[in-house]
């Protein structure tokens, strides 16, 4: 269980003003849930996951993971970044072993776990390649294998598939769903793509001006979320609700974004 208790994150704007990237957010996320954070750029989605990762200090409030207060980054909350964060100086397999090595897991076991996850993401044949020899999509697979190999109960993904082309994105979305269904980890996935949220999420949090604007539960939507499911009345209703918050809200611009931080 993850709990946000009255969490605020305040930044000082370059021009001097104060910005509340998160504004008194309280929410709880049960174990094993696939949660999507949706919202426009600069409304606090990234701050939400970075705060949970321990990479962003809080102005007020607290975050609890499994009952323990978050005080900084830890391996129990793995993170896949939007940018390419695969270490270029390590081979693909050494990348997947990174967290295990940092935590002192012996070589033999590390190797076995890494190879197992590399096959799971379809890269067993590239274990000894350098990251530069892989495509962008393949490097994302490496990043996914790395966090799953590290066996964190909570995985945070900050628009991980953002820079990829449509087909590669779909492949990776399917892969992630498969791995999640197999491992039942808690996944918090930031996106600004409605379709991506419909494909994957149990629950969608609409983030707006640093607050949770809408909490949408969609565990009842059957999986796999193929086109028929996404065209079903329940899904269409969810889509409309998301759209209302995302873009074409008439009073949107009177309610200017609080944050420049995406």
């Amino acid at each position: 269980m993850i709990e946000f208790r009255n969490v605020s994150c305040q930044f000082t704007h370059a021009a001097g003003g104060e910005i509340k990237a998160l504004n008194d957010v309280s929410i709880s996320i049960p174990d094993g849930q696939f949660l999507c954070l949706l919202g426009r750029s600069g409304h606090g989605k990234s701050t939400f996951v970075r705060a949970l990762a321990g990479l962003q200090s809080l102005s007020t409030g607290e975050i609890l993971v499994g009952g323990a207060k978050v005080k900084g980054p830890g391996f129990d909350r793995g993170m896949v970044f939007q940018e390419d964060s695969v270490f270029p100086w390590l081979s693909v397999r050494e990348n997947v072993e990174f967290g295990l090595k940092a935590r002192g897991i012996p070589k033999g076991r590390r190797y076995k776990i890494a190879m197992q996850w590399l096959s799971a993401v379809g890269l067993a044949g590239f274990a000894d390649s350098w990251p530069r020899q892989l495509s962008g999509g393949m490097r994302k697979r490496v990043a996914i294998a790395t966090v799953f190999a590290n066996d964190a109960p909570v995985l945070l993904m900050d628009e991980p598939f953002g820079p990829l082309d449509y087909v590669t994105r779909r492949d990776l979305q399917d892969l992630l769903i498969r791995l999640w269904q197999k491992t039942k980890k808690t996944i918090i996935f930031v996106t600004h793509d409605i379709e991506e949220a419909l494909l994957m999420a149990d629950r969608v949090l609409m983030v707006r001006t640093g607050r949770i604007a809408e909490d949408i539960f969609m565990e009842d939507l059957p999986r796999p979320r193929d086109e028929d499911v996404r065209a079903s009345p329940a899904a269409v209703e969810v889509t409309k609700m998301i759209q209302k918050h995302l873009a074409l809200n008439p009073d949107w611009h009177s309610n200017e974004p609080t944050a420049l931080v995406s």
Partner: peptide, 18 residues
């Protein structure tokens, strides 16, 4: 050194020294 490498390492369980 890009900050994301260090952040990534920290979230994978590496201490500051590591």
């Amino acid at each position: 050194v890009p900050k994301r490498y260090m952040e990534s390492a920290r979230t994978l369980g590496a201490s500051r020294g590591s």
